[in-house]
Simulated assay, not measured.
Amino acid sequence: MNFTWMVGLLMLIQPLSTQDHLSITHDGKPIERIERDKVTVPLLPVPMVDHDRYNLLLKELDKKTYREPINARIDKSGQIVPEQAGVKLYHKDFAEKFYTYFFNGGTSTLEIPTLPVPPRVDKELLATIRIKQIGHYHTVFNPHNKNRSHNISLAAESLDSSVIFPGEVFSFNQTVGKRTAAKGYMRAPIIVKGEYSEGVGGGICQVSSTLFNAVDNAGVTITQRYSHSRSVSYVPPGRDATVSWYGPDFHFKNTYSDPLLIRAQVHGGVVSVAVYSTDAIEYKPRRVPWASIDQLPKEKKIESHVDTEPAD
């Protein structure tokens, strides 16, 4: 702060031009142009930075600079796809360069300083936790129902390669995300207040129910689960886990000492979920009743239409 005032006092001897500007670039491309008077406290004899406006500038630059990291994952062929680091604004370095521009005067260009954002899951971690299968489950569906099959595949793809660290609570909704038409989800049968209807995302509850039975088989602690308002045919009675973006969610907690890896895949009319971890994990599996795979679950023909995404 003393340095700031000293530099400001020097400006009394050599006044700054408020018409100067700062061009801010990212990867060599301009992303912001700042006029000096836009970040200067008005009506002061000594030029000073308006910190409220400076903080607003930082928020804007944060949005334009940030790139989310991408976790390592396992592709459909079983190969590990390496992680990608993200990028964020380096606030301390930017502040030093910004104040240098502000008090030195003149027009200037500043290449925005950044810091890498490491992903939560790298390829080395995946390689160590894909070794031992500790739980699994599969259910069948009618592959000729194109819309429902498509939704099941999308949800399974979002779930696949999820990693749950020790002590972490998994949320199906937060992992898979909101089921919308913009994300590719289609209209298919759902259950609304005990009645069959149709809505965007129908079918995803078969994925959440398959996941529930797989992690239950692995002995994982279930912390939140709700059943449908009427029975479903793809799992035994009482073995379902209904989910809805604006309603129930499915949660479980990793109480083991090692991370857990979820693999979710769809082949033909079968959705499979398996739980993996390190070779050294100590776990207590549970026996779970298996769904019948001899015949396809019964389906309902739906005539009514709704735009919400309730549980299916």
Rank of each mutant, 00 (worst) to 15 (best):
P285N: 11
A241S: 06
W245A: 11
S208Y: 05
Q265S: 13
A241D: 00
T242Y: 09
S272Q: 11
N173K: 09
L296Y: 12
F250R: 08
D307F: 15
R230F: 05
A188L: 12
M186H: 10
V235M: 10
S257Q: 13
V270L: 11
W290L: 14
V271F: 00
R239G: 05
P285T: 01
I302L: 09
S277L: 02
G202W: 00
G203L: 02
K253S: 15
D307N: 14
G203H: 02
K300D: 07
E303V: 04
V270N: 12
I293H: 15
Y185M: 08
T223M: 04
D258I: 00
T180Q: 11
H267K: 14
S197P: 00
K284N: 14
A274R: 11
S231K: 15
S209I: 03
E303K: 12
V232Q: 10
K193S: 12
R286P: 05
A182N: 08
P297N: 07
I191A: 08
Y196W: 13
V306P: 01
Y276L: 02
R225L: 11
C205Y: 02
Y234L: 04
E303F: 08
T175M: 00
E282P: 01
N213T: 03
N254R: 07
G199W: 04
V243P: 06
S292I: 00
V200W: 01
V275T: 06
F212V: 00
G269A: 07
V266L: 06
L296A: 13
L296I: 05
N217P: 09
F170D: 09
Y246R: 13
Y283I: 05
I302K: 12
S208N: 08
I262P: 02
D279Y: 10
Y246Q: 13
S304G: 05
K298H: 07
A241W: 01
L261S: 09
L211V: 03
E303L: 14
P189I: 04
G238Y: 01
